[in-house]
């Protein structure tokens, strides 16, 4: 029996800013994981990663990260990925403030 597929998102760091970004359904890169496309099967995951690899002028080190289907949006599974959506815990730097400034 095939093992159940853990849903994935494609994520990377932006080339110019270095911040964490996620690949959206439209093939853009968003600093907000809520915008990410949640990928539910292995073949699509592979394909999306290849597409991301072709965008080396925008992002660095794209990879597939496990994600969960939240109420309305993909959510991180591992704590490392959760930290990437927020920023460091010792200062209010990174997304936890940058994102608020935008909204």
């Amino acid at each position: 029996m095939p093992r159940p597929f853990t849903p994935k998102v494609v994520t990377a760091n932006r080339l110019l800013e270095g911040d964490a970004v996620w690949r959206t359904r439209d093939g853009d890169w968003s600093p907000d994981m809520a915008q990410a496309e949640l990928i539910e099967d292995a073949r699509t995951a592979e394909l999306r990663l290849l597409e991301a690899a072709a965008e080396a002028h925008l992002v660095v080190g794209a990879y597939l990260a496990d994600a969960a289907r939240g109420e309305t949006r993909p959510e991180p599974v591992h704590f490392r990925e959760a930290f990437r959506t927020r920023g460091p815990s010792n200062y209010a730097h990174g997304k936890q403030t940058d994102m608020q400034e935008k909204t």
């Binding site: 760091n13 800013e17 270095g18 911040d19 964490a20 080396a56 660095v60 080190g61 490392r80 930290f83 990437r84 920023g87 460091p88 730097h93 990174g94 997304k95």
Partner: peptide, 21 residues
């Protein structure tokens, strides 16, 4: 490419971390 650039930036002390360079 990043593969070409990465050793160059590391030699110049520039790392890519979780949230930024």
């Amino acid at each position: 490419t990043e593969d070409e650039f990465k050793p160059l930036r590391l030699m110049n002390g520039l790392y890519l971390q979780l949230h930024a360079y």
